[in-house]
Design a binder for these strands. Structure first.
Lengths: 322, 322
DNA sequence: GCCATTCTCTGACTAGAGTCAGAGACCATG
DNA sequence: CATGGTCTCTGACTCTAGTCAGAGAATGGC
């Protein structure tokens, strides 16, 4: 009686997957990979191994209580896995680093983690293994894309500067003639135009690093322009561009615009395809930008904003050695 | 400098995914969901809601200590979320069911869980959502397939009977003329032929339910035959058939066979494709099975077993000869 | 040099999760 | 109906994770 392909609700699929996955893969996780080391200590050890730092640093990275961290460190130190020394820069806090023995224990966690992944994959035929790898790689990209943070920042902020530099590098590489397009010049321009009340600059970050950016500036009454639209190469195909574009449109609405224009270069084919998919139409050249060959415009009306990012609870960073 | 497509190791992909997923989705977090209910209790309540059962039942499903379960149930009962009554069939154990209030609490957990999944999916564009759903559905199938248990059981055991019934139903439906192919008759045959030392019967189970099966019997000196090969519809495309086939070949080797034959019906096209992929060659009819139209054979030599199941952790289901 | 602030450590405490060894109820069988 | 085996419950216990308040050292601004 049921239809043959009832268009599965992504929410149900996620839940179903989560159930299988945690039951069958995560279950073994609990007693920390059979290393005999309690979860908390293993997490801390792993984090120190990834990047040593001050106590304060580790506390914020792992979201631990200072008393709790202190105790965990004492245990690790007692087992000669870490060294803890006063930080010369501020002798209230201390710096932590792995000992040789600690590095060995870290490697052990690492090995156990790989072992476990191998245990999951091994029973499958080679064909199924590569199918699983492909599916998980795709899911990984999309999950990471879904949990990205979009924030409006000042173009002069460090995060924004890093993003714009990446943008300039890429545009330079793609359209050739690097000399003609200068990062410092771009940054100076942005600092003036992409700030409230006449503009805005948005950076998408994943685990603190910029992975995409875009700005809005004002061309005239009710008319805005999208600038500096960039998505990191490694994040192509995750819909980040479309999402950012929708977000920028909302930002433009809030700035009072009803039309949004943009220019781009014919070499940036994915970008052009994305603009067209998003309903942008080709228009005549509207500026004298030497780097632009294609020009687009769209109307932006008021309508209730859909799933724009928002506040995601940051979970504790679990130790899954990569 | 690096190659553009370096054929990713599935193990690395799994680890990478696991890291992103647990960090960002909080797979372990599936517990609390901010309901204020402790993890253990929430898990139990949820499981009872999925399917009420006896205490024993729940204990094996969740892998809990009997004392611990008893306490958890007492707590749930004190909160009037469940009713616990002696099982009329065996009054040592008790049956557990949700009260109305319990059903409400269950619905609450359910809602929180869906809410959480929605939170993950929501920021994505519709296109990315369905890509994520497709990737996770594929990964789900393969993860479940990878964690299946293959065990040799007596054909008379309950597990085996259920599998054979499913096999008979499906073959009947696929080749038409149900009346001619009888489950009881098949079961009676199997009980005699698919047991050591002349044969074997293997059932693949997932979470205690049979999802595939297959048997080996002896035709003559060194010659075995594969019988009752079946894979549940919902598990098609996960390589289960191939894996089971490899396993049965190993079983046949251990029975001393060097050639393996099988018959099948032309309507079972996927099965035929699989046999061919596995190196089976068409041969002439070698029996008078009315239900068979195609006949295959292969040589099975001794060689070091590849990723054949072997020593996977054996569940609580012990083989009981009846 | 003074003082509020910032930082870490310590001890005391709670709650959850789980184990273990009996005690006692219940069952199947000869 | 006796007996061995199976099942659940109870109490006593351990371990991990995490919170909280206060002591004391170091810092930065004045």
């Amino acid at each position: 009686m049921t239809a043959s392909a009832p268009a599965p609700d992504p929410v149900d699929v996620v839940r179903r997957f989560n159930r299988s996955y945690t039951q069958r893969v995560g279950a073994l996780d609990e007693s920390f990979l059979g290393s005999g080391m309690p979860l908390g200590r293993a997490r801390l050890l792993y984090e120190i191994g990834v990047e040593p730092g001050t106590t304060q640093d580790l506390r914020t990275r792992l979201g631990l209580d200072s008393g709790y961290l202190s105790r965990l460190l004492r245990d690790l130190e007692a087992d000669a896995l870490v060294t803890v020394e006063p930080d010369p820069a501020d002798r209230r806090r201390r710096t932590v680093a792995l000992t040789d023995e600690g590095r060995q224990a870290w490697g052990d966690l690492e090995r156990r983690s790989a072992e476990r992944a191998r245990g999951l994959v091994e029973p499958l035929t080679a064909r199924q293994q590569s199918r699983l790898a492909a599916a998980l790689a795709e899911a990984d990209l999309l999950v990471r894309a879904a949990t990205i943070e979009l924030e409006t920042v000042a173009p002069a902020a460090d995060l924004a500067r890093r993003a714009v530099r990446a943008y300039v590098d890429e545009v330079g590489a793609r359209i050739g003639g690097t000399g003609t397009f200068d990062a410092d010049e771009a940054l100076a321009d942005d600092a003036a135009r992409l700030v409230a009340p006449r503009g805005a600059f948005v950076v998408a970050t994943s685990a603190g690093s910029p992975v995409a950016c875009g700005g809005v500036q004002t061309l005239g009454p009710g008319v805005g322009e999208i600038k500096r639209m960039w998505v990191d190469d490694a994040w192509r195909g995750a819909g980040l561009g479309s999402r950012l574009l929708r977000h920028l449109e909302q930002v433009a609405r809030e700035l009072g615009h009803t039309e949004l224009r943009l220019d781009t270069h014919e070499a940036l084919t994915e970008a052009i395809a994305m603009y067209e998919r998003a309903g942008y139409r080709r228009i005549e050249r509207y500026n004298d930008n030497l780097h632009a060959t294609h020009f687009f415009s769209t109307e932006i009306r008021e309508f209730p904003r859909r799933g724009v990012p928002g506040r995601r609870r940051v979970g504790p960073c679990l130790p899954h050695p990569t």
